[in-house]
Design a protein around this nucleic acid. Structure first.
Length: 269
DNA sequence: GCCTTATGTTCAC
DNA sequence: TGAACCTAAGGCT
């Protein structure tokens, strides 16, 4: 159940394991059998992440495209593959290592042109150095949609998910219900820069930490147990508890089918 | 063991 | 707006 930072982390890991190597690719479950046969036995030339989308490139100009969705998971192992247990969509294997993919929303083979189209469909990804924040700003400041929803829209901010959405709004004192049209340029720039930094840090560690250093003693003192997503945060999944920085109670509400967390004291309408 | 929940997206109505 | 997708972990019994 990863946000963009984890996908980038996994892309690096897949690159380290398989780049420039001839690999075997199969689909013990069968649902990716046709795709696997098109890249089986080829050499991996590139691994890229764009938002929550992962692309593995091969020397025949084809790409495996993976989107984990809510349930998808990679598992990395050393040595010879063991007998598959349960539903295993794809295996990618070198002599020393292999990776197993279960439960993805998307696992398909694309041509270079199709891969380009897939990337064009999503917005700029704050983790990528080649991202153009103007594309996101143009959509945000023209939209009456709530900024909390815009942050979750992959065509606006690729890779941002429910944790980064809640946390970046908290860090900038912005109500999730404020329309995009009422987010000014300065606030947008600050949030974009913050996302770039937070998500890049989250890529290295494959976890999400958003608490500023000066608040850590207070947060650690009052939240001895890590939430199971791993990492220290201000409001995500803290509904009903008091805010770390003010007296207000952290709120939870449904926004477009996803749970939204915010502090009404620090993020007034 | 069973029920709920989850860092997500798409499609049908 | 809701269901479907289809996996794993945590909480509860």
């Amino acid at each position: 159940m990863p946000e963009g930072n984890v996908i980038h982390h996994q892309a690096r890991r897949l690159g380290r394991a398989f780049m420039k190597r001839v690999v075997r690719v199969d689909s013990p479950q069968g649902r990716f059998a046709d795709g696997a046969s098109r890249v089986d036995g080829r050499t991996v030339t590139k691994v890229e992440a764009h938002g929550k989308h992962l692309f593995i490139g091969f020397d025949n100009r084809l790409w495996i495209h993976v989107h984990l969705g809510l349930f998808g998971k990679w598992r990395f192992r050393n040595g010879d593959p063991v007998e598959p247990q349960g539903q295993l969509r794809m295996r990618i294997m070198s002599d020393e290592k292999y990776a197993e993919l279960r439960g993805p929303t998307v696992c398909e083979v694309l041509t270079s042109a199709e891969k380009k189209e897939a990337i064009a469909r999503i917005g700029p990804d704050p983790i990528r150095k080649d991202a153009d924040p103007e594309r996101a700003w143009n959509k945000v400041h023209r939209s009456r949609t709530a900024i909390g929803a815009l942050l979750m829209n992959q065509q606006v901010f690729a890779g941002v998910g429910n944790i980064y959405r809640a946390e970046v709004l908290f860090r900038h004192g912005i109500s999730p219900y404020r329309p995009g049209t009422r987010v000014d340029r300065e606030e947008f720039d600050a949030m974009w820069g913050d996302l770039a930094q937070l998500m890049s840090a989250g890529t290295k560690r494959a976890r999400i930490d958003t608490v500023r250093e000066e608040h850590l003693p207070e947060v650690m003192g009052r939240a001895p147990r890590e939430d199971r997503h791993g990492g220290e945060v201000y409001v995500y999944r803290r509904a009903g508890q008091s805010c770390f920085l003010c007296e207000a109670e952290v709120q939870m509400a449904d926004m477009q089918g996803r749970k939204l967390y915010w502090c009404p004291g620090c993020q007034p309408d």
